[in-house]
Computed example of a mutant assay.
Amino acid sequence: MDFEEERVVDAQAGDLERAAEAALRPGSLGEFVGQPKLRAQLDLVLTAAAQRGAAPDHVLLSGPPGLGKTTLAMIIAAETGGVLRPTSGPAVQHAGDLAAILSSLNEHDVLFIDEIHRLARAAEEMLYLAMEDFRVDVVVGKGPGATSIPLTLPRFTVVGATTRAGLLPAPLRDRFGLTGHLEFYSDDELERVLTRSAGLLNATLDPQAAALLAARSRGTPRIANRLLRRVQDWAQVHGTGALDLAATEAALELFEVDAKGLDRLDRAVLHALCTRFGGGPVGLTTLAVAVGEEAETVETVAEPFLVREGFIVRSPRGRMATAAAYHHLGLTPPADGAFPGL
């Protein structure tokens, strides 16, 4: 198989994975598991808007990746009867890019902007006017002969999603009528997510297997569904086809997901911090080089969970391992009970 064939196969595999993930998304608020307060708030806003026959207020969703921000945007579009128009902050680098998107919107459409905090400044300024007055000013020409043509927009709803709400400018944040934060899921909620997903996959998930998967899914439905599909793969290829406890344990061992939900990258970060750097403190860039990953990958993928679980702490001088990290790796913490630099 040559390089071009490998690229096509990889692309097809990625498309199948995304299609499988999309098939598991709930289609309504009633099917959406977890986030009870946010669901109640959205239900009120959407119901009131429907009774008025108007587009609902703009919605800002914040929280860690994988908790359902994109799914909720799809549900909002479905509930309003509009079309979801997805884009992302990094993809909109010029005001003209945003103007082209806005001019294509129809009444009650939902413009979903993922990672909205990364919008270019010029596009951000245009979005202010579009969200508030439902119009944009299109500049035609250059220099002294340039003219501004106002373009009226239909009533639409912006749904912004961000993993870093603190980076969102206050003027943009204030233009959202509803701001919701998604919390990590409990094990019970994840078991309900997994049971529902297994049904959509035409499989029956053993309750013990569901509990084990939920405990190792880091409070994140996206991870839970991904692990469920890997268990299904293992059961199909090596097992009897049943999603039971034995198949689940074997699949989790194969994909290196341990009892705390840590994967290969998480353990590599902890191992480097504890053994190569004496528990720290060590800078993020140095730690990333030690594990062979980009600093952004370590900071956004591994670090949030490790901090939340109490395995590492951040300090002005860098990252440091806790006693829990040593114990999890089967190592002995420093004899004096303190870490270097503390």
Rank of each mutant, 00 (worst) to 15 (best):
T70E: 10
F184Q: 09
A23W: 00
R25S: 09
S315C: 09
G34F: 03
P333C: 12
L38F: 00
V307I: 14
G330D: 09
V298Y: 05
V140R: 14
T322N: 02
D114Q: 00
V83H: 15
T162S: 11
L201N: 04
S315I: 08
H117V: 03
L172A: 09
V45K: 05
E6V: 09
L265R: 01
W234K: 08
L306E: 07
D263Y: 06
D109E: 05
Q12W: 12
R317L: 14
S197T: 10
T147I: 14
D174S: 03
N202V: 11
L270C: 11
T300G: 05
S88V: 02
L111R: 06
R276D: 15
A78Q: 08
P340L: 01
T275E: 10
Q41R: 13
D2N: 15
G66L: 09
P144K: 06
T240D: 14
R135Q: 13
V59A: 03
V193A: 12
M131I: 06
R164F: 06
L178I: 12
L212Y: 07
E4A: 15
A73V: 04
L243P: 01
E107S: 15
L102C: 07
L111H: 07
L194M: 07
L262C: 13
A54G: 10
L168K: 02
P334Q: 08
E31W: 03
D109M: 02
F32A: 06
L200V: 06
D109L: 00
F184Y: 13
P36K: 12
E4W: 00
I101K: 00
S197L: 04
A210D: 08
F134C: 10
A20R: 14
V289G: 15
D206A: 00
D206F: 02
G89H: 08
I113A: 07
S148Q: 03
A19H: 12
A130D: 05
D109K: 06
M74A: 13
F305S: 03
P304R: 09
V92N: 07
V269N: 02
F339Y: 12
E294S: 14
G292R: 11
E249W: 10
G166S: 08
T147N: 05
I312E: 02
I116L: 13
D258K: 12
V92L: 15
T157Q: 01
A54I: 13
V269F: 05
G166K: 00
A50K: 12
V298D: 04
G63T: 06
A209R: 04
L44N: 12
G89K: 04
E296K: 14
E107G: 10
L111E: 11
R25F: 03
R192S: 09
T157S: 00
M1S: 12
V140Y: 00
G141Y: 09
V138E: 02
L329P: 11
I101E: 09
A22I: 11
T147L: 12
R314W: 03
L262V: 10
P26W: 03
V110W: 00
G292C: 07
P64I: 00
V140C: 11
V158E: 10
A211K: 11
L153V: 01
A91M: 15
A250I: 01
L329S: 04
L213E: 07
R164E: 14
V83T: 14
R135T: 04
A250M: 05
D97S: 07
D10I: 01
G160Q: 06
